[in-house]
Design a protein around this nucleic acid. Structure first.
Length: 493
RNA sequence: CGGAGAGUGGCGCAGUCUGGUUAGCGCGCAGCGUUCGGGACGCUGAGGCCGCCGGUUCGAAUCCGGCCUCUCCGACCA
């Protein structure tokens, strides 16, 4: 690679900043050079470019299908929320007030009541549910919406934290506490499945500490992933809201015994941040690496020729290959650009993370074969020759193999950086290059202390059933108070 | 909001200290030609009121004052 080492003075570097040199620079380089997103005129806002949006679309389709399969229906609630709605739930307003965008003027005059640009829609759903839910027969109410929300964040980063972002937010109401908790965990499982099976991003499912939970929730469940620099990223959250919003919005129903009851609600969301998670879980110094399940282009054909005659035969053969793969519903693209050397085009597609590249030159035409090169492995092992007869099934198998292999690699990487700690010094050491699992008291003071000394925050109390996590008789590894549970601590985005 | 940098063709930078005629360079872009199995090359060309406002001066990208914006590092967060 010509990009290694010192860039000649005055020359623009080709490729991205190496991860080892500056991880966050590497991240922004990849996002921009792979044309996933670009900065927008307003601070903290980004333009999601077609390639990035297609990636999000794939994730969205996978998640939407699963939500519908579990009985959820899509709807659309408005962008504006009356200020007074936000103020109805004490903890909720406390949590969101600092990051609200508020509209004070409309139609040329000052509004009587300011309108909040939704940071999340619990309050709007609450108001509607109070009107829509009358009887136990109306329950459960399972509605999801795909929308944009706005949170005035201090420190934006492309995809990971932008002022405006896209997500889905599910809002459900149930007759009993048990049903609502069950829903909360069911959704968490769906998020974990989409993350792992679709995005090949391994997760640890867990519960948030009281400090880290959603403003207005009784319990927040999360999926946490380890990025390439070993920092943690919260991938999605599922909240058990208890009866907090039911009380605030008076969402009541008559049960079978004709008694008035408050509903139990949940809310949950997965965002465009997931795109950032994919970049940081799989990317390398050559750019993006995309799991086949969400790759907008799964296979790219790069034709190679010298003479006009070769060009004709190579393109005819490439078209034949493309047609075959298309028929098998493989997302395939033919790189018909002229005037760019093969090497340049190889690097270009590698930057974009296309899982499989097929090289087709005169030699391949003669042998009726192609050179297939997988993006997820380095070196000579990446390349293999395949005959064109029966190519599609073999490519499909290869794509499956890549999908599985990427999850496996990411999981192994993560597991190699998980470590137990028994005191603050050990924890501090571990979080320099991984996640530390400790018995923890769950108190704010203790979390703050850890944060101050190590920059690591409480990620979650893992739900791992295989691990005996009972805190009975255990004490906090940091402060010595009785343990609340086992928690992961890590540097986080 | 605290700390640090930076604003000069699309991108990355030089020039600013020590004001002086047509503001340079690399990449990219356009045209033509030669190339083409791991980031090709030549020639020709297009593109800039030097972030904004004001001041000093015969003369400001350059000096002075004010303002704005962006990026990075912290606190906040999906």
């Amino acid at each position: 690679m010509a990009t290694q080492g010192v860039t000649p003075r005055g020359a623009t570097p080709r490729g991205v900043t190496p991860r080892s040199e500056d991880y966050s620079r590497w991240y922004t380089d990849v996002v921009q050079q792979a044309e996933l997103a670009d900065y927008a005129p307003v601070r903290g806002c980004m333009i999601i470019r077609p390639y990035g949006y297609e990636l999000w679309d794939s994730i969205k389709i996978a998640l939407d299908r699963r939500l519908k399969a579990t009985g959820h229906r899509n709807a659309y609630f408005p962008l504006f929320i009356p200020m007074s709605f936000i103020e109805k739930e004490a903890e909720h307003v406390e949590g969101f007030k600092p990051e609200l965008a508020i509209v004070t003027h409309g139609g040329g005059s000052e509004l009587e009541e300011p309108l909040v640009v939704r940071p999340t829609s619990e309050t709007l759903f609450g108001e509607a549910y109070a009107r829509w839910i009358q009887s136990y027969r109306d329950l459960p109410m399972l509605i999801n919406q795909w929308a944009n929300v706005v949170r005035w964040e201090m420190r934006p980063r492309l995809f990971l934290r932008t002022t405006e972002f896209l997500w889905q937010e599910g809002h459900t109401a149930h007759a009993t506490r048990e049903e609502a908790v069950e829903e909360t965990l069911k959704i968490l499982d769906i998020y974990a499945e989409v993350s792992e099976k679709v995005c090949a991003v391994p997760v640890i499912k867990g519960r948030k500490s009281p400090q880290e939970k959603f403003a207005g929730a009784d319990d927040t469940y999360t999926i946490e992933s380890m990025m390439g620099n070993k920092w943690a990223l919260q991938g999605a959250t599922s909240h058990f809201l208890g009866q907090n919003f039911a009380k605030a919005f008076n969402i009541q129903f008559l049960d079978e015994k004709n008694e008035l009851q408050l509903v139990w609600t949940t809310s949950w969301g997965m965002t465009t941040r997931t795109v950032g998670a994919v970049v940081m879980t799989h990317g390398d110094d050559k750019g993006l690496r995309l799991p086949p399940a969400i790759a907008p282009i799964q296979v790219v054909i790069v034709p190679i020729w010298k003479t006009d005659e070769e060009k004709v035969s190579v393109f005819a053969f490439a078209d034949e290959v493309k047609t075959q793969l298309n028929a098998a519903e493989i997302r395939v693209e033919l790189d018909a650009r002229e005037g760019l050397s093969p090497g340049f085009r190889f690097n270009d597609w590698e930057m974009r993370g296309v899982p499989v590249r097929l090289e087709i030159g005169p030699r391949d035409v003669a042998a009726r074969s192609v050179i297939a090169c997988r993006r997820d492995v380095a070196g000579k092992e990446a390349k293999m020759s395949m005959t064109v007869e029966g190519l599609a099934p073999r490519i499909l198998a290869l794509l499956d193999e890549i999908q599985v292999s990427m999850l496996k690699c990411a999981t192994e990487f993560r597991d190699a950086h998980l470590c137990k700690a028994s005191n603050l010094a050990e924890l501090a050491d571990i979080v320099e290059d991984g996640w530390a699992l400790i018995y923890h008291c769950g108190t704010r003071e203790c979390e703050d202390k850890i944060k101050e000394e190590t920059k690591a925050s409480s990620r979650c109390y893992p739900l791992d059933k295989n691990e005996s996590w009972s805190p009975k008789g255990k004490v906090c590894a940091v402060c010595g108070k009785p343990a609340f549970g086992k928690a992961y601590f890590a540097r986080a985005y």
